[in-house]
């Protein structure tokens, strides 16, 4: 099914005061349909987002990336009648100029679109290895080798969201989306995106890996 153009960009944000304005400026150059979900930031992330003509939702408490993504999606699909959403990170590690690639993928009938980072040498070595391990383990468990699972630049249609509506609140959300996509055998596509790293001390760390791997085991049992 081809998607009509009611596509919204959802940006979950937590303490991204250094980048949120830059991200929103770039995204608004591509589309006016933007939702920012401030996940209980303790800095000026929300205040800065409010200065832009975007929809701003604010969690009063930090619930985690997965919860923020879900709030944004539920708002987009239930309140705004979105046909599809594109998830982007708020730390300026995604190029807004690549949004049209996701829109075009929907035009080809994809239900889920994964942004896969090219130029792997730009990625820190350990993250690259853990990234590949995640894809390999997902293949072992669900029979589908999905590339660059941790990439937060991804998109899905309303129907796909109803199938993959995740439960994870933390960084395991990316794994769960991939697992549910594989399990439900949804039509997915890849879009090559640039690799950008600013703060290697933010985002997922080695401490997050073991709970995520344990979550993969739980998904195998429960899905």
């Amino acid at each position: 099914m081809k998607i009509k153009q009611n596509i919204w960009v959802v940006i979950p944000a937590y303490n991204e005061t250094n980048y949120i304005s830059r991200v929103l400026s770039k995204v608004l150059a591509e589309t006016s349909q933007v939702i920012v979900v401030d996940d209980g930031s303790s800095d000026n992330t929300c205040a800065q987002a409010l200065t832009f003509p975007v929809h701003v939702i604010r969690h009063r408490l930090n619930l985690g990336k997965g919860a923020a993504m879900k709030t944004g999606c539920e708002y987009a699909f239930s309140q705004l009648g979105a046909d599809a959403v594109v998830m982007m990170d708020a730390d300026d590690q995604h190029e807004a100029s690549e949004l049209p690639l996701f829109f075009a993928a929907f035009g080809r009938g994809s239900q889920v679109v994964f942004g896969i980072r090219q130029e792997p040498k730009e990625m820190p070595w350990l993250r690259l290895k853990m990234n590949r391990l995640g894809s390999f383990l997902t293949y072992l468990v669900f029979g589908e080798y999905i590339l660059d699972i941790p990439s937060g630049f991804k998109a899905f249609t309303r129907q796909a969201y109803q199938t993959i509506a995740w439960e994870a609140h933390n960084y395991a959300v990316e794994l769960e989306i991939a697992a549910r996509t594989a399990k439900a055998k949804l039509r997915y596509d890849y879009v090559r995106i640039k690799t950008v790293y600013h703060d290697t001390n933010k985002g997922m760390t080695m401490l997050d890996v073991i709970p995520i791997l344990w979550y993969l085991v739980k998904l195998k049992v429960t899905l």
Partner: peptide, 18 residues
Amino acid sequence: RVEYLIKQLAIKEVRVPS
């Protein structure tokens, strides 16, 4: 329950651009 409440409040208080 806390998560549900926070999400509902957040969506209810959404700031929509004029």
